[in-house]
Write a protein that binds this DNA or RNA. Structure first.
Lengths: 156, 156
DNA sequence: ATAATCTCTATTAATTCTGTAGAGATTTAA
DNA sequence: TTAAATCTCTACAGAATTAATAGAGATTAT
């Protein structure tokens, strides 16, 4: 599962992406619209700022805004900033590779091999889907099987 | 990241899958071969037994063995037994669906939509890859791009 | 100056993870 | 029938992580 913090970050960024370019939005407003604890959101936005995704202005008329175009901010980027490496094994992380402590030989590890394939697939999606993509309200005939299935369960 | 417990479980099951069908193996032996804390492994194997993946015999000549053919035990099954739902969001879990506490409307949630696609992909792999698949030592020309890339980094 | 707003660091409570401990039950075989 | 080997079950504990909360500080507009 992704962390609550990551969900908050994604919700906040989606709200920022929806705003007209340039208008800064208040932490207070984002927090109340998205039902995010304000002080927690402060930390999150600060992380995102330190990583160059958003800008901020202090004082009156202050607030936060996206620093990059929504079509250049991927879910993968956001997840890595907030939750750290997405890889299911440290030895599969491209940004933060670490050896698995007790692994005999990485090159022949069956577990690594299987998870590598699974991770490739999901990373491919998350690293190519942007905030702009997420905002597009797609017609039903373009939904994936998984989306259709889950939509059916939800409305059932 | 998957848990240490899940890695232990996978390693133990791979060791059981390698054994000739029928011979039970001792917890002690699996623990020492795979460098798994013995008492921790006891709990893990017990979980797997309660879920019908392995059998056990007590007393002299006791031990553990697979209850099903390795080609009928998927990585997905194992991961769900040990780590619980694999879905990145509770509202995407097929086995253990839960509503996201603070979600306005699941059917239009952008976050859910994106992660649904990513999860579909990786679940497809993990639910179709079996212990038997993992044991096959495939020639290099059948490796995926991700496997090649990571093999290169490892040997570099 | 003052009010509004973001910034930074510390602290805390709850939960999860990774084990450890030990008494108990079952089986085999001498 | 006894002893040794092995799995079974429950409880506990320390460390790490998560999800906040708190509060003093810095900056900006008016």
């Amino acid at each position: 599962m992704i962390s609550q913090k990551a969900k908050y970050a994604l919700r906040a960024l989606i709200e920022l992406a929806r705003a007209k370019e340039g208008d800064a939005q208040l932490i207070t407003d984002i927090a109340s619209h998205q039902r995010i604890p304000k002080k927690f959101l402060e930390q999150i936005l600060l992380d995102l700022k330190h990583d160059g995704l958003v800008y901020s202005r202090r004082g009156r008329n202050g607030g936060y805004g996206l620093l990059k175009d929504p079509c250049h901010i991927t879910f993968g980027q956001i997840m890595r900033i907030i939750d750290g490496p997405m890889a299911p094994l440290p030895c599969l992380s491209r940004m933060a590779y670490r050896r698995c402590e007790d692994c005999h030989d990485e090159t022949i590890c069956e577990i690594r091999r299987v998870f590598s394939r699974a991770y490739d697939q999901s990373a491919k999606i998350l690293d190519s889907t942007t905030l702009a993509d997420a905002l597009i309200n797609r017609p039903k005939d373009l939904l994936t099987d998984g989306e259709i299935e889950s939509a059916e369960r939800v409305t059932a």
